[in-house]
Amino acid sequence: MRILLIDDEAELVSTLAERLSIRGIDADWVCSGKDALKKIEGASYDIAVVDIKMPKIGGIQLKRMMAEKNPGMKFIFMTGHGSEADFRAGSEEAGADYYLVKPVDIEELMTKMKEVLEK
């Protein structure tokens, strides 16, 4: 399983990537939509875990752009913003495979990543 984590909070995604690698997951991370698009040019990922609120290219827009380049990729959205109900509705509308509210529970993330890939 190869994962790309995308969030403008570098400390968050770098630490999350390290925790996933301890669990045997191959995880890369970037801090912007622009870098994410560059990253998928040179490598393929099974799942992108994307923060919904990011400067310049937001998560929903980024999902559309990444899905165009890599139609098989799955998407998990995460946010620390707004109510969970609003976020869930927005994620579903954008076609996310799952959504997480920060702070992220890594065991939930692990479980959902497996489920999303088995779908």
Binding site: L12, H81, P103
Partner: peptide
Amino acid sequence: KNILAIINE
């Protein structure tokens, strides 16, 4: 919330 998420990680 972002800061709490970082401390959590």
